[in-house]
Design a protein around this nucleic acid. Structure first.
Lengths: 206, 206
DNA sequence: TGCTAGATGTTACTGCATGTTAATTATATC
DNA sequence: GATATAATTAACATGCAGTAACATCTAGCA
């Protein structure tokens, strides 16, 4: 998946999966059926309580009944092991293609009273809303997916602007500054903390 | 399918399928790969020119490559014969659950004073009306389904023109420009906003 | 088969919004 | 309190969007 350009997090048991999912936002979930602690079926159910994110179930159990259960429980697709990598990629493609603008799964991201509308490119807080430019949006989306995480400037720059070579600029700072201004006007709060020598974080440190 | 409460039309060859599809609106298409006159792949492609209706391909060919082709050509799912009825039903459920509002809906779309007649390819505003070309229509329909949403150029291109290779981003711009002209003559208003670095939105941001 | 008209796609040039740079002020850490 | 790092502001230039004009394609018709 990473070779195809996707960003990936991995959980090695069901509980870890749910915890990851609770703390960050994902565009798609690949879910094994047989997992330690909590099986994939249960994980799928619980994710479906909170989100409509696309879910693909992977499993060795080829019996038909299982497939039906998996799909009825809320999975969007189902692959039986051993599967072909290209088929997996093709199915991932299909599910992600359904998303408008190739941007995101859930139509909005939330952190505290901030809501980022991923379809309308809008930052909403209570009654008010502010427009974002493309780069501002990308940066904010990235950081709202993992609130409280510290992001290095170089990482932010790479993800939003691409490239790296000869990066000695204050581009990230300026964009953060503009975002801060918009956030401040909306909510009166300072959401971005600078982390000296590293970069930035959204929200306080836990 | 009928026992489950669905209304069903059946075509016994590819041409009949396309003819049925041209004359009626469907919520979902079950498509056999091997068909007389026009094979399923071709039917799938042609349907995709005109519609985003969910398509499930059915086939005896189990080879992986075929699956990939089927999905990349625009099918939403794929079942290998012999399949279990319950699995088919489950997958049908999944796809219908995702059905975007407005697909099987009325014969015209409305946004503010604009009305798009989906059968006559006509754009009506008050007393006046303008004819639209096929591409203009597809683009406008897509964007009127989700007013205020931001659509990436690449997304628009894929949906209206299909495929990516050799894609010229000015094509979308020019079509938007032509639409703008027609809309301006009709209503005196500028409906399309450009979103720098991404694409376009219909209407202002809320 | 060739003619015509309308639709569609491409190119090229202009203006300007946005992103970037640079310079200055503020703040944190030792 | 010194120094290094971050924040802010303003000016600038880049590269994107708008559109006219040209080229190509397609359908309808004789």
């Amino acid at each position: 998946m990473e070779r195809e350009g996707y960003r990936v997090d991995i959980a090695y048991d069901g509980e870890a999966a749910l915890e990851l999912f609770a703390n960050q936002k994902y565009d798609l979930v690949l879910l094994d059926w047989t997992l330690p602690k909590l099986d994939g079926l249960e994980v799928c159910k619980q994710i479906r309580q909170a989100s409509r994110v696309p879910i693909i179930m992977l499993t060795a159990k080829g019996e038909i009944l299982d497939k039906v259960i998996g799909l009825e429980v809320g999975a969007d697709d189902y692959l039986v092991k051993p599967f072909d990598q290209r088929e997996l990629l093709a199915r991932v493609h299909v599910l992600l293609r359904r998303l408008p603008a190739g941007l995101a799964a859930d139509s909005w991201l939330q952190y505290e009273e901030l809501r980022l509308d991923r379809e309308k490119l809008l930052l909403v807080c209570g009654e008010e809303a502010a427009a974002l430019t493309a780069n501002e949006y990308k940066l904010l989306e990235l950081m709202m997916k993992k609130p409280h995480n510290v992001f290095a400037r170089t990482y932010l720059y790479e993800e939003v602007w691409g490239e790296m070579p000869g990066y000695n600029d204050r581009t990230v700072d300026v964009t953060i500054s503009r975002l801060r201004k918009k956030l401040l006007e909306l909510s009166g709060k300072k959401y971005f903390q600078a982390v000296r020598g590293l970069g930035y974080r959204l929200g306080e440190q836990p």
